[in-house]
Structure formats: C-alpha cells, structure tokens
C-alpha cells in the first residue's frame, strides 16, 4: 500500500532482486549492485514500505554501534536517487 508521505515509492523497488550475498539486480535496467549488510537491510525495509524512522529502529535492533542512523538512512536514500533506483518524489 503506497504511503504518500514516504520519501520514496516502495513500488519502484518491487522488482529489485536482493540476495543475502549483497548482490542486487535491477531487472528493469540490467544493472547490478553490491551493498553492505546495512544497505541490504535498508533496501529490504524500503521494499516493505517502512518509513525512514522505522528503518532506523530496525537497523539499531539488528546492528550494534550505530550513531546517527537516521542521517545515514536519509543519505542512503539520496544515494539510491543518485543511482536512479528511486526517483525524486514531488511533495504531495
């Protein structure tokens, strides 16, 4: 269910194939990517429609030692936008 206040559209990530190895494939473009463990977890959570705050909570629960996790998640979403994996969303 798309939530309009997310800074990304989970639907855009639906076709993305994520592997536990960190190997990611975008069948729409044929590009593949490599992510670290937190990157992979963030992507998976984004696919599930979690908002950035919920993703940060999840990362804190699954990994130890995170400090400014919210900023890191925001930076990651920017990076996905830079890579063309998510598009900028116009404000509702």
């Amino acid at each position: 269910m798309p939530t309009p206040d997310l800074p990304y559209d989970p639907a855009e990530l639906r076709t993305l194939a994520l592997s536990d190895t960190g190997f990611i494939f975008d069948p729409r473009t044929g590009h593949s990517y490599s992510a670290n463990a937190t990157g992979l977890a963030t992507l998976a959570a984004m696919k599930d429609g979690l908002d950035p705050a919920a993703i940060a909570t999840k990362l804190r629960a699954e990994f130890k030692g995170g400090a400014a996790v919210e900023d890191d998640v925001a930076g990651f979403v920017d990076l996905l936008r830079e890579l063309g994996l998510v598009r900028a969303r116009s404000a509702p």
Binding site: T38, G39, E62, V69
Partner: peptide, 22 residues
C-alpha cells in the same frame, strides 16, 4: 540479535570491466 557491527548503509553499481571483488 545485534551481533553485527553497524556500518553506514552503502550500495555501489557494478561496472563492466571492474566487476571483481577480490
């Protein structure tokens, strides 16, 4: 559960001609 060390989430596009992790 939280036994894995946190790293900032990161992703890189694999580019042709440089796809060699080792």
């Amino acid at each position: 559960m939280a036994d894995r060390i946190y790293e900032r989430p990161a992703i890189v596009r694999n580019t042709f001609g440089a796809m060699n992790k080792v």
